[in-house]
Nucleic acid binder design. Structure first.
Lengths: 116, 116
DNA sequence: TGAAGTGCTATACTTTAGTATATCGGTAAC
DNA sequence: GTTACCGATATACTAAAGTATAGCACTTCA
């Protein structure tokens, strides 16, 4: 058993958790979709218009993904015709702090790389 | 000028900063390379061996990338043969807190999705 | 002398993420 | 009665990221 394997294991677990987080955060559209929903857009077409440039195929796919990740909820209302609404979950709220950390680090990083 | 454009602009700037951060963090190897260097590996082959599974081509490319992003420094020593050492910069240290946030959110998220 | 290590680079390939475009069944407005 | 909106889905494509494999100029080590 190599000397560093314990730390190495811990490191691999860390990387897995980081990867879990990144799966949500690092796709091109997921954050934008959540932002659009937070901004009050509930309907498919509203979100599509708010973001601009996303294809319905991507939006459909990412909405499903976000629902599986319990970040948004899809509600179907039995109106004529059926109305569908997407809302963010409380769990999605916990993203706010994280995104803010990413944002501030991103700003700091840009200064470090290009000079103030 | 649409009503929400100010918030929308701020939102787009946020997304840019987040994207800057993600460019560093979300590649398959960059964090692993930095971790390997933090663990005391300074030489190309040491890093390669520590990580395992990375091709020399990727390692070479990512090291250059990390240097451009001022997260590591490449030093050439005029020995026979020349020795090359990679070290992490103080700026790279600022990643630790961020990665830790990603890690803890990742753990929390996994619990939220699969239940405790 | 020849095998193995060092720090790479080149070429070609595969895999994954995202795009473009067309379409669908329903409803409602003109 | 045809045009447009809604919430999508299907098929096919392109671009970006990463992999596989070989090799190079050099230097030890046995």
């Amino acid at each position: 058993m190599p000397v560093n394997s314990k730390e190495h294991d811990a490191c691999k677990k860390s990387l897995l958790a980081v990867k879990d987080a990144l799966d949500v955060i690092s796709s091109k559209w997921k954050l934008q979709i959540i932002f659009a929903i937070w901004a009050g857009n509930k309907r498919f077409k509203d979100i599509e218009r708010q973001i601009g440039g996303i294809s319905p195929r991507m939006l459909s796919k990412e909405l499903k993904d976000l629902e599986e990740h319990k970040l948004i909820v899809r509600k179907v209302y039995d109106t004529q015709p059926v109305t569908i609404e997407y809302t963010a979950t409380p769990h999605a709220e916990t993203l706010k702090e994280l995104v803010d950390k990413l944002r501030t680090w991103g700003i700091k990083h840009r200064k470090a790389v290009f000079g103030k």
